[in-house]
């Protein structure tokens, strides 16, 4: 019998319930708390983005938007006249998140496509081909994961500058497009754990490595490659430091950098909170969409599968 029935006399329970287990309930409570902390801030961001700046202070604890308006979103997409923007607590400075959205899409797509494909090739060589120095070269590649991005960022910035590629999309994608150490590591793990049988059968039939790679390994690895592409895309989407260094100008500015600029443009006095939160949501939206569509894939990919 559960403890609740003693307080409120209910009709006899239709089915047996698990006896109340305080430890289990406690575990659930903690889990629910963690979920609330993870998710509720986003609702607060949405609520703020739909509010009018001037009313945020007076209705700071209401769960509903304070004086509902789409003004903040209009402002972020540059659809509001400077006068209206200033009247609603914006800075009035021109800001165009459509452009940043486009730039972010281009930047993330190119780097993801290149890095995933080239890393898959390399990972295959590290996992399935036998050659002298393989493990040594792999450990060198892996060692690059240790190199702090700031360390290579300074010389890479100079390289891109010397190549006259500052503030170009090419300059922004170059360091990422050939590989990422993580992608090689991730796919190598998968290739190592793949069954050799099919490959060996193909090899007995006289198939060589390129054919095996494209006809057997890649199709078999479609799932992890898709996962890797998703993770890489999200990672690139969220990249801030490098685009800040080489892509600060408006025509190649990505969303993350745009957000920082938008924040720093805050008018004197109170910041444009609803505008800032609307911009934040716009920047998060593509990732949220990907997450809604492929959430299961992303979630199940998290883990060091097959560390050996």
């Amino acid at each position: 019998m559960t403890t609740t029935t003693s307080r409120a006399p209910l009709p006899a329970p239709a089915r047996r319930r698990r006896p109340f287990n305080p430890r289990r309930a406690g575990a659930w409570a903690l889990l629910v708390l963690a979920i609330a902390v993870s998710v509720l801030p986003f609702l607060w961001v949405l609520r703020t983005a739909l509010s009018t700046n001037g009313s945020l202070a007076s209705q700071s604890a209401s769960l509903l938007p304070a004086d509902f308006t789409f003004g903040a979103f209009l402002r972020v997409f540059g659809l509001q006249s400077p006068e209206d923007a200033i009247a609603e607590g914006g800075s009035g400075a021109a800001i165009d998140f459509w452009l940043y959205l486009r730039n972010s899409l281009i930047f993330s797509s190119i780097t993801t496509a290149g890095a995933v494909f080239f890393s898959a090739l390399a990972a295959y060589a590290f996992a399935r081909l036998r050659w002298r120095g393989r493990n040594f070269v792999f450990s060198l590649f892996l060692g690059t994961m240790l190199v702090p991005p700031i360390f290579t960022a300074l010389p890479n910035f100079l390289l891109i500058k010397n190549l006259d590629l500052l503030n170009t999309m090419l300059g922004m994608v170059l360091p990422y497009v050939f590989m990422t150490p993580f992608a090689i590591f991730f796919l190598r793990q998968f290739f190592l754990n793949m069954s050799r049988e099919v490959e060996e059968a193909a090899m007995l039939d006289g198939a060589k490595h390129l054919r095996i790679f494209f006809q057997i390994v890649l199709p078999n690895a479609a799932a992890p490659i898709a996962t890797l592409a998703l993770l890489t895309f999200i990672g690139q989407w969220n990249e801030y430091f490098w685009p800040l260094l080489v892509g600060s100008q408006e025509d190649v500015r990505v969303l993350q950098v745009g957000l920082g600029v938008f924040k720093s443009q805050s008018p004197q006095g109170a910041p444009d909170w609803s505008g800032l939160m609307a911009a934040t949501l716009v920047s998060a939206l593509p990732v949220l969409i990907l997450f809604a569509a492929f959430g299961k894939k992303i979630v199940n990919s998290i883990g060091f599968s097959g560390i050996k």
Binding site: N238, Q256, S283, L288
Partner: peptide
Amino acid sequence: PYLMSNVI
């Protein structure tokens, strides 16, 4: 939260 950027 992890899927959001540091900036966000």
